[in-house]
Amino acid sequence: MLETLKKQITAITENTAVSTDSRLQDICDLLKENIDYYDWVGFYFKNGDKPELKLGPYAGAETDHTIIPFGKGICGQVAVSNKNFVVADVAAQDNYIACSITVKAEIVVPLFINGENIGQIDIDSNTPNPFTEQDERFLEFVNAEVAKIL
């Protein structure tokens, strides 16, 4: 299934007739609709020169977390570490910002352009410990495709 999704992601990013934000939204929708345990899918981007992330396109429940300071929560930590962060159980994380009481796990993968961390893809899951190394590699692929259109 991931190979099929990869082809669909590439088709979305290569569709230059559609705005970048629309393509990012299409990617969020595609992932949320096709991977059972991806309950919230969104992009956060560096907010200009400020040490914070700003919410971009997303699919899933509305969130109050439209701005996240670097270092705060899982997303803010990835903005500083530049490394993937897989959280099997959000309740076990001290520096976790709860978006919903239903969220059990989270994965955040940084998005790089020319070696600079400019944002990330963030996935919340209502399923305990669902993320595997396969998810990490897949989301790295998604971000590499997205980087081509930013």
Results as ranks from 00 to 15, higher is better:
2 L>N: 10
3 E>G: 01
9 I>F: 02
11 A>S: 15
20 T>C: 10
20 T>R: 15
21 D>V: 04
23 R>C: 03
24 L>M: 11
26 D>W: 05
29 D>L: 11
29 D>C: 04
33 E>A: 13
35 I>S: 06
38 Y>N: 04
39 D>I: 04
39 D>M: 00
41 V>M: 11
42 G>M: 02
44 Y>L: 07
51 P>T: 03
53 L>A: 11
56 G>A: 08
56 G>N: 04
56 G>K: 09
57 P>K: 15
57 P>R: 15
60 G>P: 07
62 E>H: 08
63 T>V: 12
65 H>S: 12
68 I>C: 06
68 I>P: 05
69 P>E: 10
71 G>Q: 08
71 G>H: 10
78 V>L: 00
80 V>R: 10
80 V>S: 11
81 S>F: 01
82 N>R: 03
83 K>M: 11
84 N>S: 14
85 F>P: 01
85 F>L: 15
86 V>C: 14
87 V>F: 13
88 A>F: 01
92 A>T: 06
93 Q>I: 14
93 Q>A: 05
95 N>H: 04
96 Y>W: 13
100 S>C: 07
107 I>N: 09
108 V>G: 03
108 V>P: 10
114 N>I: 05
115 G>V: 02
117 N>P: 08
119 G>A: 08
120 Q>R: 12
122 D>C: 12
125 S>C: 03
126 N>A: 14
130 P>R: 00
130 P>E: 07
133 E>K: 13
134 Q>C: 00
143 N>I: 08
144 A>I: 01
148 K>E: 13
148 K>Q: 11
150 L>M: 13
